[in-house]
Design a protein around this nucleic acid. Sequence first.
DNA 1: AAATTAAGTCAATAAGACTGACATAATTTT
DNA 2: AAAATTATGTCAGTCTTATTGACTTAATTT
Lengths: 166, 166
Amino acid sequence: MNDAEPIKTPLTLDDGVDFAIIEHLFFAYRDFTADPDAILDEYGFGRAHHRVLHFVNRLPGLTVAELLEVLRITKQSLARVLKQLVDDGYIVQFPGPRDRRQRELYPTQKGRNLALALALPQSRRIRAALEEAQPGDSAAVARFLRAMVNPELRPQMDKLPNGRSK
Amino acid sequence: MNDAEPIKTPLTLDDGVDFAIIEHLFFAYRDFTADPDAILDEYGFGRAHHRVLHFVNRLPGLTVAELLEVLRITKQSLARVLKQLVDDGYIVQFPGPRDRRQRELYPTQKGRNLALALALPQSRRIRAALEEAQPGDSAAVARFLRAMVNPELRPQMDKLPNGRSK
DNA sequence: AAATTAAGTCAATAAGACTGACATAATTTT
DNA sequence: AAAATTATGTCAGTCTTATTGACTTAATTT
């Protein structure tokens, strides 16, 4: 009974859950993605385009299958986004040298420029956040975020250029 | 000319951008949200329901307008989600005592239970990530994440119970 | 020659957001 | 007391990003 009774006390850290970091992550990630979103809007692109463009720039020559694995989306979801980026000249495709069924994806100079422009405000935000921090905090943050990822995915992260450095 | 030329070298940290933390945040946030998403699926709920339920539990008695401000969405977006949570008995509404136009939102016991169940895997993930960390890392991470949020929003974060403690 | 694989495409669906317009009830201002 | 404003709710339509399922084409493997 009393199933519809209102509970008037808030959930707090005393309930054994780290709400502070849970909420900090929510707010931080929201503002973190808002920066590039505003730029993407001017190009008629969305967050999905950003992710594709980012990883093609970080791993030039990766295949469609590899990109799908990193992004963890379906090829139908990728198709629309990738087609636009290719049509608009941000990404070019080449048949794989070994296996010609594969398509190797490379950024053009235009694609490289946009990827950098999108990363810049995010990098600025990170740098500003670390400026208020103590020495060593940067490494602590990188370690923490890496440990937040499922263990089986961490090797994938380490394949990214300089992915291991802090 | 040569606008369609492929660029074969990857973007790296040498380009002056902290790609490591940018990508760490992407992967960490993806796995961080995947935990509750799996639970929500069983209830026929989505991530939007989670956010509403979370903040109603953290700030019991908040009004619809206050909730909209925290979530930064429109009332039409909130409507669908909130209606389901009320209809299914996770949240109850009461007219505001001062201003009867307002609706104060409270969790029921059922809503409290679900909010805790959703927070638990996230809290476990955070605790596990901090266990591999050095002492003091926890505070450094909280400071960093807070500094990643737009300054004008930080007072709002501090209003959450124990929001300031590390 | 047959089976498998990489990629592309077509169609339908869903969640979660949006804008714009309008309704109702309660409060505040004039 | 009447008018204006405010808090909430609702209707209708749109957009982005994702999904599943089915099928095609071309290339490689068995």
